[in-house]
Computed example of a mutant assay.
Amino acid sequence: MERRRLTLTEKLAIMTRQARCPVCGEKLGRLEDCEFDHEIALARGGEDSLTNLRAIHAVPCHLTKTSGTKATTRGSDIHEIAKERRVKADQDDFRRRLLAKSGQAEPADETAPTQRKGKWPKRSFRS
């Protein structure tokens, strides 16, 4: 999905609408020190509209919201997107196994996830 390019007027309207960084709560300051972030990420189904955009400090607030801290990604956009994909893959796999067990045919789906790689190797180690 192509992201929209914000005009200077739209950026100023977003900044005057909120005036404070939603992550740290401090005043936003200059336009050059801010980045514009989707409140609900596009990858999670958010809209690319002015109502879903918000101004946020470039560093470290935007980086923390998107990628998480150095210690963990929990609560970040990347973490939430990966979790949604894992849950969807698990649900699709469960549905496929349930249908196979009951003998019902499942329609061919080219986007069906492949089997997840296990943590342990399939063969034993040789010394």
Rank of each mutant, 00 (worst) to 15 (best):
K27E: 14
N52E: 04
G25P: 01
R20T: 11
E2S: 15
K101C: 14
D109P: 02
V23G: 06
K101R: 08
L53I: 10
R30V: 07
T111R: 12
H79E: 09
D109F: 02
T7C: 05
E80D: 10
K88G: 10
D33N: 15
D109A: 09
A55Y: 05
I81Q: 11
R5S: 12
R5A: 12
L28W: 01
R54M: 06
I78G: 04
L53S: 11
T72W: 01
T72F: 00
L12D: 13
R54S: 02
E47S: 13
H62A: 05
N52L: 03
H38P: 02
R96Q: 07
A108K: 11
K70C: 12
A13E: 14
T64D: 11
L8C: 13
T69K: 07
E26D: 06
E110G: 14
T111E: 10
G45P: 07
Q18S: 10
E26L: 02
S67W: 11
R95F: 08
E2L: 08
F94T: 14
D48N: 11
E10Q: 14
I56H: 01
A82K: 09
A82N: 08
D93V: 04
M1T: 07
G75E: 00
L50A: 04
G45T: 05
E2K: 13
G46H: 06
R5G: 09
S102I: 15
A19F: 04
R3S: 08
R96I: 01
T51I: 06
D77P: 05
L42P: 09
E47N: 14
D48W: 01
T66P: 04
V23H: 11
D37A: 00
T16M: 15
R20G: 03
K11I: 10
L42E: 15
A82F: 13
E26H: 00
L98V: 15
K101W: 10
E10N: 02
M15Q: 15
C61M: 04
E26N: 01
A13I: 02
A105H: 11
D92K: 02
L31G: 05
S49W: 00
T51V: 14
G29M: 00
I81V: 13
E106L: 15
E10L: 03
G25H: 01
C21D: 04
A13R: 10
T16I: 07
R95V: 12
I40Y: 04
T72D: 05
G68A: 05
T111I: 07
D93C: 12
C61S: 05
S76C: 00
T69R: 08
I14R: 06
T16A: 08
E2V: 07
E106W: 08
A19P: 10
A105K: 09
F94I: 12
E26T: 06
R96W: 03
K88T: 13
S49Q: 07
R20I: 05
P22G: 00
R44H: 07
Q104E: 12
T111N: 13
S49P: 02
L98Q: 09
P60W: 02
T72L: 03
T66M: 03
M15R: 15
R54H: 14
S76M: 02
E106M: 11
G29F: 00
D37G: 03
G46K: 09
E110S: 06
N52S: 06
R96Y: 08
I56C: 07
K70M: 10
G29I: 00
T72Y: 03
L12P: 07
